[in-house]
Write a protein that binds this DNA or RNA. Structure first.
Lengths: 341, 341
DNA sequence: AGCGCGATTGTAAACGATTTCAAACCCCTT
DNA sequence: AAGGGGTTTGAAATCGTTTACAATCGCGCT
């Protein structure tokens, strides 16, 4: 039992397919009587226009592509939800891909987008440097970068204020009296890694504290990377009284590492994470973090893409959304300085 | 700059479009010389076959639809990842929709799937009762139910062993010596809600304990629902020494409620959750839960759908994946019975 | 040499919608 | 009554593939 086509509807209503199409698209020049007739036939057959055919003919689809690194990361989860809500509002569907930060996989998926002839793509690129995305631009498929910048003059972006957020986190620690602050960070191949490190360094410099390379660890953005880096820092740099961890999954690992070392938070060590999570309040002590407006990030990115689809020639827009320092229980003055803050 | 078409390739290679198509589809009867020629042209033009046209012609697409309630639920997050990995392995893309447990939204999205002419749909239905999914079956679009059964003789399903899991959880509590066990559960409109309650009741009956309706609360599957239900139970039913919470988000809320009441886990009250989460070990005490094989659930569902696409006539298959009781620190013998277990 | 038969290639018709163009029609004016 | 303007309708082309069918080619066999 195949789907009915516009021909079936036309036959049923005793008109031509052209008329059916006109009714469907609210085109003028259809008499009320015929319109009613056609609508009746549509309802009777439970007819749905075939989007594939529409797409082929119209050369534009109501589908957006979405390439992120991993849907299992709660950050992207919220972003995706924001995108989806805006997209569906506007009648667009979403094709989802996980690149796992692998540039080859990303390239593959970009080609999928091309083949699917999506209207536009929202991309959290695995790498700033190699913009496979330009393949898309070359076919007039607009791209919006999310979470990570892409080196291209023609790509809108929607990012969190990473540097400022990181700076806020570290400033908070400095204000509490910490002077030896460790940093567990992301690879420097993508915007968040680059800018959060900058923020860490800026906060130190603004308070005349030295930036000590040995107190900085870079690892992949997973729980294990956070764990190993934190453990290593705690062992190698015993002066450290506070830790800034640049990513939510890494924070999980870092907290485990701290527990393994038998240290107590915040008495022995203060911890600030980046990106809030629903369970931050359940930890003992609850976690101090820099919250990103994740859902809004997604909304804004989708809105930006839809804007650009409507008006392709407008100038490129870069949006930065502010972060919020949420002080909970995992930060306090370092031991012996309880009154200095 | 439009995408090159098979005509462009044909012209470039000095052959007909039919030959290009044959090369593309590894069809027989193409001389090696011509094949090389065509491949060269394809590479030169960076040609990608237009899937829209392929789809229209072939009347089958390499796209799967996925309708879940909410991607922000960590359970679905893992499920989606499992689906996506299997789907992309087989060359399929994924169209994602969030129904928010709203049957109307679900119906809308099912129509989107129909219009998109997806090859098949994986559906976590908002309701067992109203199978909008039959609209899809009527058009020969196969459906696989995930997490929740659908009342239809023709729909494969992939579910967790909800009843057994719940029974294991409650049995664990009973074995520790608890006799007054509260249940914070999901609505009875969907499989997990129905079966987990069954499991709770079965465990009690198997141990000759009464099933007391007043110790059971049903609420929506969000954090707030869990919080309010748990709080209510703690106040109304002071005999309760253990709580079984049927969903991960509700568990979050329940833990908060317990903290608000100033109770200590597990001394004053034991807690078992359903569905493991990465941060379960970070809680103080770490959370005892029933772990579902979420990622495998997704994998199996996708595999099932691909199987059915390959062979539409095979009999319907219902897959149940086992759960695992993970005992951590949030459960112990009730006060005053420390040695009875 | 002529015939026949694969193997190879091309031509043209689908797929289901939109859209251009022209035909048909209505009603009004002169 | 004929012509003209505007509205309504339909026929046919189009989008980029796949595929049934026809045409061509080359080669071996008699």
């Amino acid at each position: 039992m195949d789907s009915p086509t516009s021909h079936d509807v036309a036959k049923q209503a005793g008109v031509s397919v052209a008329t059916v199409s006109r009714v469907l698209n609210d085109a003028p020049h259809v008499s009320p009587a015929v319109r009613r007739q056609v609508l009746r036939a549509i309802r009777k057959l439970n007819y749905q226009p075939n989007r594939t055919a529409q797409r082929l003919r119209a050369k534009q689809s109501k589908v957006l592509g979405l390439i992120i690194s991993d849907i299992q990361n709660p950050f992207f989860t919220a972003v995706v939800r924001g995108i989806e809500d805006v997209a569906h509002q506007a009648g667009y569907s979403l094709v989802l891909c996980n690149s796992d930060e692998d540039p080859d996989k990303e390239k593959l998926y970009i080609n999928v987008m091309r083949a699917e002839a999506v209207a536009g793509v929202i991309l959290a690129s695995a790498s700033e440097a190699k913009p496979h995305a330009s393949d898309l631009l070359a076919q007039n498929i607009p791209v919006v970068a999310i979470d990570r910048q892409i080196k291209s003059r023609r790509i809108d972006s929607v990012l969190a204020a990473n540097e400022q957020g990181a700076c806020d986190a570290v400033t908070h620690l400095i204000n509490l009296g910490h002077t030896c602050i460790g940093y567990v960070g992301l690879p420097l191949t993508r915007t968040p890694g680059i800018e959060r490190l900058k923020g860490y360094e800026r906060a130190l410099r603004e308070h005349k504290l030295p930036v000590v390379r040995a107190r900085i660890r870079i690892a992949n953005a997973k729980q294990l990377g956070g764990h190993d880096s934190a453990l290593d820092l705690l062992v190698q740099q015993p002066c450290i009284t506070a830790l800034f961890v640049a990513n939510n999954l890494m924070t999980l690992g870092a907290l485990n590492a701290i527990r393994e070392r038998g240290l107590e938070i915040p008495r022995d060590i203060s911890v600030v994470g980046f990106d809030d999570v629903p369970w931050a309040t359940l930890l003992q002590p609850p976690l101090t973090t820099i919250a990103q407006p994740t859902y809004e990030l997604g909304q804004k990115a989708a809105a930006r893409l839809l804007e650009r689809l409507k008006n392709p020639e407008q100038p490129v827009v870069h949006t930065h959304l502010g972060t919020t320092l949420i002080v909970r229980g995992s930060t306090s003055a370092p031991r012996g300085k309880e009154n200095s803050a």
